[in-house]
């Protein structure tokens, strides 16, 4: 009841322990930063320096040549257009897929939170199990379903797959949020005669800004970083960046120029890293929310 200063958690007492603590944290930080720094620094080296073989050395003459090559002329197979088309494809796929799966998840989540039925729990359980089903057990029938609508390996097809595969996840996140929203709010809207969709649009959505951002960030990261679905469902004209990147790296000519490969890898990682660094708290919150699935 009483407002008092926040209780301070016990600290490691002895100075040695405190030192050990920081030593551990610094070593861990180095472990986490190592691959990123290494890849970035080598992507900035010209080929002569790469051939000297010292991976950890800083670039003596930093150059963006490898980045330029990776961006527009590295070969992914037969064509040599770099990762640029892949970036555009990824944007084209990710943006609509994120928007649709997030909004549909919000609507479903609200409906499920409102839905009082003996079977509601069972359905939630089935949805939750859906989160953990290995994609492999659904891939081939999905291919068949899409083919029968002429959507396999098309732009619309890949978006549809991302939306459907992401739906249980977004729905569950929103449902968990909406279960915590006082029911009186919906009831009040209902007393005013608002329909379900009207209530959702005018009353519930405006309350949901935070969770919308959180879910959109999670979905963005997930879809942008997807490899398997893009590989199978996108079709050659819409291959996302992750697929293009592996094609560049695994291309026979690619292995000769690691700096270009690394530059391509960094370019691929940049969008999600930007989102991560800009969204900070939301990202963390989303992870914590997503972790307690159910």
């Amino acid at each position: 009841m009483t407002r008092s200063p926040p209780f301070e958690r016990p600290v490691f007492g002895p100075r040695a322990a405190r030192f050990g603590l920081y030593a551990f944290l610094f070593v861990s930080a180095a472990f986490f930063l190592l691959p990123l720094l290494l890849v970035i620094s080598n992507s900035l080296k010209p080929m002569e320096e790469i051939r000297q073989g010292n991976l950890l050395a800083f670039p003596v003459k930093p150059t963006f040549d490898a980045w330029v090559t990776a961006w527009k002329s590295a070969c992914t197979g037969l064509d040599c257009g770099g990762v640029r088309p892949g970036l555009w494809n990824s944007v084209k796929i990710t943006v609509p897929a994120v928007v649709i799966s997030t909004l549909a998840g919000a609507l479903n989540g609200y409906a499920l939170a409102q839905w009082k039925s003996r079977h509601a729990n069972l359905i939630m359980l089935l949805v939750m199990v859906g989160l953990f089903i290995p994609y492999q057990a659904m891939l081939y029938p999905t291919v068949k379903i899409l083919s029968s609508f002429g959507l396999f390996r098309t732009y619309c097809g890949i978006i549809l797959v991302h939306v459907v595969y992401g739906l249980p996840y977004t729905t569950l996140l929103f449902r968990n949020f909406y279960v915590g929203v006082p029911e009186e709010i919906s009831r009040a809207a209902r007393m005013e005669g608002a329909s379900f969709f009207r209530t959702f649009r005018s009353v519930i959505l405006p309350l949901s800004t935070n969770i919308l951002v959180v879910v959109a960030i999670l979905q963005f990261t997930g879809i942008w970083n997807d490899y398997l679905l893009g590989l199978i469902f996108a079709g050659n004209d819409n291959l996302p960046m992750t697929v293009q990147l592996t094609n560049i790296v695994n291309n026979a000519r690619g292995s000769a120029s690691p700096n270009v490969n690394m530059a391509a890898a960094v370019i691929t990682a940049i969008p999600t890293l930007i989102v991560y660094f800009l969204s900070g708290r939301y990202f963390v919150r989303g992870i914590a929310a997503g972790a307690v699935k159910g």
Binding site: M1, T2, R3, S4, P5, F7
Partner: peptide
């Protein structure tokens, strides 16, 4: 005895050595 924020819990924590 006291209303919220009067310092009573803090006093107790000080006696206990928690604060």
């Amino acid at each position: 005895l006291g209303p919220s924020g009067c310092g009573k819990s803090t006093l107790l924590n000080v006696i206990a050595g928690l604060d």
